[in-house]
Design a protein around this nucleic acid. Sequence first.
DNA 1: CTGAAAGCGCTAACAA
DNA 2: TTGTTAGCGCTTTCAG
Lengths: 341, 341
Amino acid sequence: MRIKKGPSKTVSINDVARLAGTSITTVSRVINKIPTVKEKNRLRVLDAVKQLKFQPSIFAQRLATGKSNVVALVIPRYEGIFYSFYALELIRGIGTLCEALKLDLLLHLADPKSAINLKGIGGIIFADIISNRLQLEDALVSGIPSIVINNYVEDLEVSCISIDNIGGAYEAVNYLIGLGHKKIAHITGDLITQAAAWRFEGYKKALKKNNIELRQEYIFKTDYSRGQARQAAEKLINMPDRPTAVFVASDSMALEVMAVARESGLKLPSELSIMGFDDNPSGLYGPVALTTVRQPLIKMAEDSVKELNLLISRKDKNAKPKRILLPTELVIRESCQPPAH
Amino acid sequence: MRIKKGPSKTVSINDVARLAGTSITTVSRVINKIPTVKEKNRLRVLDAVKQLKFQPSIFAQRLATGKSNVVALVIPRYEGIFYSFYALELIRGIGTLCEALKLDLLLHLADPKSAINLKGIGGIIFADIISNRLQLEDALVSGIPSIVINNYVEDLEVSCISIDNIGGAYEAVNYLIGLGHKKIAHITGDLITQAAAWRFEGYKKALKKNNIELRQEYIFKTDYSRGQARQAAEKLINMPDRPTAVFVASDSMALEVMAVARESGLKLPSELSIMGFDDNPSGLYGPVALTTVRQPLIKMAEDSVKELNLLISRKDKNAKPKRILLPTELVIRESCQPPAH
DNA sequence: CTGAAAGCGCTAACAA
DNA sequence: TTGTTAGCGCTTTCAG
């Protein structure tokens, strides 16, 4: 026989039932807002709950229902992601909505090598998939509702919400061309990320559409860091045939380029037009407000939670994955002007 | 009678026991690395586990043991915290260590009004306590191991790890004075945060120690935002009796001040010395590298997890709370120089 | 060294 | 509308 434990610190549904003078089932019904409870009983239970400060054990609930409302947010821990505007915005958007929807947010800074313990997780949001495709595939095989954001995935049966990076970049560069620029450089982000690769694509597409030749020496590859942006900017500015405009894959890098340009005594924006990407609020300040591409990060974050929530609660598991591409918006401020002739 | 469910998708300890030809108890022992299991049985169980890809249900485990290794990180959702360098660094530090210690990290973007569901949480890290003291007190009353970071709490029986903001600010301003400055302004952060309030204290302390009178018109209160920093900087620069130095409560604001100063045509650092606080990497770039105060954010984050982990696993619940103040470090770069005479 | 069985706190099917 | 009861999957006691 098991020795009865001493008075447990936690108050359970039993205590509530006893105090309310009902069965635990009735208490359970009240907790779960099941309507078939007499008002009188409902009030007694509610009262007992209040008196006892009862909070249902989520573990027991989940064990009993087999359902979990834990949402895991998997963020690949690759170098540099944590210095991005992106990560925090995402966490903010997802965190806020989870809070609102009463979902528990489990944060998983993923080491791509280690598998995630999938048991007990209701759904997973993969914030980009850099080197952790295996984790995603694991989740899919296990049938855990998953959704990928910031990465348009076509070769896997999974819903994804992404930003139209190609379109955004295309529009940005096209705008530059419309202003009269022909010598347009590009400072890329980390090309292992789809976002950076696609922005590069958009850049190339815009040049091509306008019959402007792509010049390799105008392409500067970086890892998104300000340090590499600075190096790129220095090279760019000292080129014999200096570009008149540069499309930079992130605002924080664009700001760096702007700083370097000013240090070098270039007049901005007349001698160098700078186009960013992100709509990072930092771009607003500074002597020349940054023209940039706004991406709906918060919307992406929120939509992903909503969509995942749907997936989690949906009966029909065979729904086709949805693939969403969120449009960007060109934000015209001051840093891009027609080239000085 | 309950209708038997169809074949459940999840493999349970029963399946493992059946395949291994042992009892579930033995399986449980193997899982929990309890040594009293014959090697032969141990191997059979391990083999079955592997074959079935069994992962124990954390909910069942926690229900049975009453223990939880979930760490909740509570971040107050007050305006602006999400634009700070601080928040992301914290999440990064805490997230990484939780990962390493196999703790689940629950992220809780706290609305100060709503109570946290404390059930099932092993421990709580409060990232600052702005308007959510009630939540902290709740946790304490419930006996959940808790720890507060970035806020030195003396009136509550709770461990805390904080930064020596007074000391750091004192040292910074003292350095400015040592350089020969007498007219030193201060742009505060949001004074509802202890960090900002204490930096202000350190500033006042340094002036006092050096017999410099505090001039109210040299104090600019902000909410940490770059926008308010800009306004403050504009006022400051246009003062008839302009300060020769300014101590700014955050690097991102300091950078803003620097930008405004340069736009106004001030020579930096000779006409205005600027001291930041944070050691935000952004301060490194730009024409004049920012002199600032480094605070060990990552260390604070990591230490908090270690300490909490200790609290969680400790038997003796009556240990006195530890209160730790982490030292800061003055990082001398270029933005502070003796005043032009 | 092993296993039967009693919970952990809750939900849900069924009977009343 | 309510209560009884059988689990959910695991740990732990106690008797082999």
